[in-house]
């Protein structure tokens, strides 16, 4: 019974989303593209096996019938790599955004609810995270933890939990002033009750938007880190394909860049744009202003 309101709220979100028409045209395109990428990623993992790892043609073939996007220097089909890369990139984006979103908002609720030194401590760390130059820190952390997907997710989480935390705290602070919370508290409602019944349902929509934005941020961060050579080169994410192609000596000189550089670059841009369109629509949907990344 206790969780009824929370469940109701969660149920309400898909309800709002059920009507696809609430999305703008761009939102729809974005949604379709993201769905497509998720699907191809899954298909590639399930059915295409090692196609993204095993050479299947000559080195650096131009796009043709067998290899629609050509091959790389090892003779591996680029399309297969792109499809598999979608899985990796979305994985990184999704997990880091979820972790940062949930972790951050939990800390935010705690800070807002407890106040006092807890608040000061958490917000202090938040401030440090906001001030510290993110990319340089990411470079140092990336080199520190070593390149693996898990570590990259960790680095992105460390650097991005502060925004959801701030949003959650602000919301909880304003909710605390409201009559029903004060009333509930005077009846002796504990933190758990308040959190489950009031705070979480209250912040869920904004946090959701924030998480979607974090997904795109994480995908960009992963690509940036791998571009600098600090990613996980065994993971075959889009950033890795890009990094390898750009570091191929003489790439400026030949025509290889037209398919080898441009295809991961294009899908990366499209995915990031799609997600941002979705986030924008969701923002409007939940009447939530500000907190853009």
């Amino acid at each position: 019974m206790k969780y009824a309101k929370l469940l109701k709220c969660i149920r309400k979100i898909p309800g709002k989303l059920r009507n696809f028409n609430i999305f703008s045209a761009y939102g729809k395109i974005g949604f379709v593209f993201v769905l497509l990428m998720v699907l191809t990623g899954i298909i590639s993992v399930l059915f295409m096996g090692e196609a993204h790892k095993i050479p299947s043609g000559a080195s650096l073939e131009a796009p043709g019938l067998i290899h629609p996007l050509g091959t790389d220097d090892l003779g591996i089909d680029i399309l297969a790599q792109i499809l598999h890369g979608a899985f990796v990139s979305i994985q990184v984006g999704f997990f880091s955004a979820m972790l940062a979103g949930i972790g951050g908002s939990t800390l935010g609720i705690l800070a807002g609810y407890c106040g006092g030194w807890t608040d000061k401590l958490i917000m202090g760390i938040c401030d440090v995270m906001m001030v510290i130059p993110q990319l340089p820190l990411m470079i140092v952390l990336g080199a520190f933890f070593g390149p693996s997907l898990r570590n990259i997710i960790l680095v992105i989480v460390i650097l991005s939990w502060s925004r959801p935390a701030r949003i959650a705290r602000a919301r909880v602070l304003s909710m605390r002033q409201e009559g029903y919370i004060i009333a509930a508290k005077s009846y002796g409602a504990g933190f758990r009750h308040l959190a489950v019944k009031h705070f979480i349902p209250g912040i869920l929509p904004i946090i959701l938007v924030s998480i979607i934005r974090l997904i795109s941020k994480a995908i960009r961060a992963e690509a940036g880190l791998t571009f600098l050579g600090l990613g996980d080169p065994t993971s075959k994410s889009w950033g890795v394909i890009l990094n390898r192609s750009i570091n191929f000596s003489g790439i400026y000189y030949t025509d290889y860049w037209k398919w080898w550089v441009m295809s991961p670059l294009t899908v990366l841009i499209l995915l990031v744009l799609s997600i941002s369109f979705i986030a924008r629509d969701m923002e409007l949907l939940f009447h939530n202003k500000g907190d853009k990344l």
Partner: peptide, 21 residues
């Protein structure tokens, strides 16, 4: 930034190109 390109533009006088080039 790219030695081959620079060599072809006569910006440098010695280059170590890859086997492809």
């Amino acid at each position: 930034s790219d030695e081959v390109l620079a060599f072809d533009n006569e910006e440098i006088d010695l280059v170590m190109p890859t086997a492809d080039l």
